[in-house]
Amino acid sequence: MDLLQLIAVILDSTIRLSIPLICAAMAGLWSERAGVVDIGLEGKMLIAAFASAVAAFVTGSAWVGLGAGILAALALSLVHGFAAITWRGNQIVSGVAVNMLAVGLTIIFGNAWYGQGGRTPSLEGPARFGEITLPFARWAREHVPGLGLIYDEVVSGHAAPAYIALLCVFITAFTLKRTRFGLRIRAVGENPAAVDTAGISVAGLRYGAVGICGLLCGIGGTYLAVAQSAGFLPHMTAGRGFIALAAVIFANWRPWPALGAGLLFGLLDAVAIRLQGVTLPGIGLVPVEAIQALPYLMTVVLLAGFIGKATPPRASGLPYVKER
C-alpha cells in the first residue's frame, strides 16, 4: 500500500471514529453554552445506540432506528433538564445518574428481550445505514490523481448520519452566531438574570438547549449502533461521551474548534488502532494505550492552564435562582 493510500485509509477511519465524538461534542456545546453542565453525554449516546438498534431490528428500517435513538436520548435529556432546570439540582449528580441509568437499562432490557448478554441481534440490509457513495467518487478516483482518491476514500462512502452530523456542526455554528435563539442561548449561559429581565424565559431556553443536546446525542448513538456497527453492544460508547466533553473544553465551547478537536481525537484513535501490535524500529511494540490516553491527558493539561486557557460559560453548572 503506498503512502497516499495509507493516509486516505487512516483519514477515512478518522471520520468514522470522529462522528460520534462530533455529535456528542455539539450536544455538550449546546447544553453548556446555555449554562447546563452535562456529563451525561455518554449515557445519552448509549441509550440512543440501544434504542436505535432495537427499533431498526424490529422495523427493519435504519431511519426508524434513528428516530427511536433520538427519542430515547431526548427522554434522558428531559430527566436531566427536569432535575437541573426545574428543580435546580446538582447538574453533575444528575449527569452521573443519567450515565448509570443508561448503562443499567440498556443491558437489562437488551438481555430480557434478546438474551444475548445485552447485545441486540445483528442488523442487515436496510436495517443498517449503508455507505453513501457521493457523485463522481469512482470517476474521480480513476481520473483525478491524489485528490480523487481522497475524495472517494475519505469524503465519500459514509453513512447518512455521518453527513447529518457534519451538517449539524454547520447549523450549530450558524444558529449560535447569527440567530435570535443562538444569541439568547449564549446570553443565558453567561448571565441568566440578564435574559430573565429582558423578558425571556430562562427555563424555556435551557430546556430548548438540553433538548437539542438530546437530539444530537441521539444521532451520535445511532451512528455507533446502526451505521458503524451492526447492532448494540453493552458499554459500546466506551467513554466517547467523555472524550466529546474533552473536545468541548478543548474548543473553548466554540463549534468549529470543537469539530477540529473531535477530528483530532478521532485521528488519535484511528492511529492507535492502526498501530495495534505494530513493532516500530527503536521503539518496540507501540504502547497503544498511551495514544488512547492522550485526549484525556491533553484535557487535564489544558485545564491546568499549562497550554492556553479554558473558560467555560460563566453561569454553567449554576441553577438559576432569582435574586431577592
Partner: peptide, 19 residues
C-alpha cells in the same frame, strides 16, 4: 447589579429580547 452579558457586544446586549 447590571443585567448585562459581559461576553457579548454592546449591540447584542441591546437587542437581547428585542431582536
Amino acid at each position: 447589579h447590571f443585567m448585562l452579558v459581559e461576553t457579548l457586544s454592546v449591540v447584542e446586549n441591546v437587542v437581547l429580547g428585542a431582536e
